[in-house]
């Protein structure tokens, strides 16, 4: 591929420069590092877990118990798995089961442990040009949107939500490649940006409930379709394979996984609420999830 090769060439050219800069700058940045504490792990996770505030609730509890600091990088699921593949995180905590299983099968990490689920909701303008409000059938709702060519914003970023959205179009037997037009707008950005865009264009958008509940710029948007079983969204967690990336903090990373699928972590997840609504439903014991 053109881009990758060119990037590598450019990288090589800047290598000397980068090394020089590194030698210069290790000193000024040192205080920030020292202050952050010695024992930490890096978790690649999704925008939904970060933006919803779940980690702000979980991590202090985990740290109080173990003394381990957790540094969370929020990315789309696809990007988070890639971060794990490159060895830039110790633990991956995402929500796209098929992609997670591929990650494990390729030997990049695992085993995958189910943690919790939340659900997706179909958001749209209150004016509801496709006339789908109150439906519990997501497939029928998407068919109505496509038929009326009502504007629809797609994440388009290989995130878990994007992959779930694509699966739902399939469930509705709509061939996007064949039928998409200007009504279908891929933005290639995170959940919040997608909601902002949908609000600005009076468009429909699929969101996870957690991000929606904590989202502040709702404008004229509202939940139009919810409750379909096909909208459930399962999260899984995996340790990055230490055989492949020897620097992976196996013990501390495993401690985090054990805690989050154990009784304390599961209870903490169930306890997390926004405006009295529970956002995530712990289900680590459901081995089939």
């Amino acid at each position: 591929m053109l881009t990758k090769r060119h990037l590598l060439a450019a990288t090589t050219a800047f290598l000397a420069l980068g090394a020089a800069a590194l030698a210069q700058d290790s000193r000024p940045a040192a205080p920030a590092q020292a202050q952050a504490g010695a024992r930490f792990i890096t978790v690649a996770s999704t925008t939904s877990t970060v933006d919803s505030g779940l980690f702000n609730h979980l991590l202090p509890l985990f740290r109080a118990k173990t003394g381990i600091e957790v540094r969370v990088i929020s990315q789309g699921t696809g990007q988070a798995l890639d971060t794990g593949r490159r060895g830039d995180a110790d633990v991956v905590f995402v929500h796209a089961r098929a992609a997670e299983e591929r990650f494990v099968a390729e030997g990049f990490g695992g085993p995958r442990r189910p943690v919790m689920y939340n659900d997706f909701v179909l958001i749209g303008p209150k004016s509801d040009p496709a006339g789908i409000k109150g439906s519990r059938d997501i497939a029928a709702a998407l068919t109505a949107i496509q038929t009326k060519a009502a504007p629809f914003v797609s994440r388009g970023d290989r995130s878990g939500t994007h992959q779930a959205e694509l699966a739902l179009w399939q469930a509705a037997r709509i061939d996007l490649a064949a039928t998409r037009g200007t009504w279908y707008r891929e933005i290639g950005q995170g959940m919040g940006a997608a909601l902002n865009t949908a609000g600005g264009m009076n468009a429909y958008v699929l969101s996870d409930r957690a991000t929606w509940l904590s989202f502040r710029n709702r404008g004229d948007l509202d939940i139009l379709v919810e409750g379909d079983r096909r909208l459930f969204n399962q999260y899984g967690i995996m340790l990055v394979n230490p055989q492949r990336h020897p620097h992976v903090k196996q013990a501390d990373g495993q401690a985090f996984i054990d805690w989050i699928v154990g009784p304390e972590g599961q209870k903490a997840i169930a306890d997390y609420q926004i405006n009295g609504q529970q956002l995530f439903f712990a289900n680590a014991s459901d081995t089939g999830a």
Partner: peptide
């Protein structure tokens, strides 16, 4: 560029600098 340099799979990966303030300094210096 800095990401690819500093990633664990990149040439300077062993330094373990990705996702640190140091990495941010390098990128901005560039």
């Amino acid at each position: 560029l800095v990401f690819l340099l500093l990633s664990r799979s990149g040439p300077l990966g062993p330094l373990g600098l990705l996702f640190t303030p140091t990495a941010m300094v390098v990128a901005q210096a560039l």
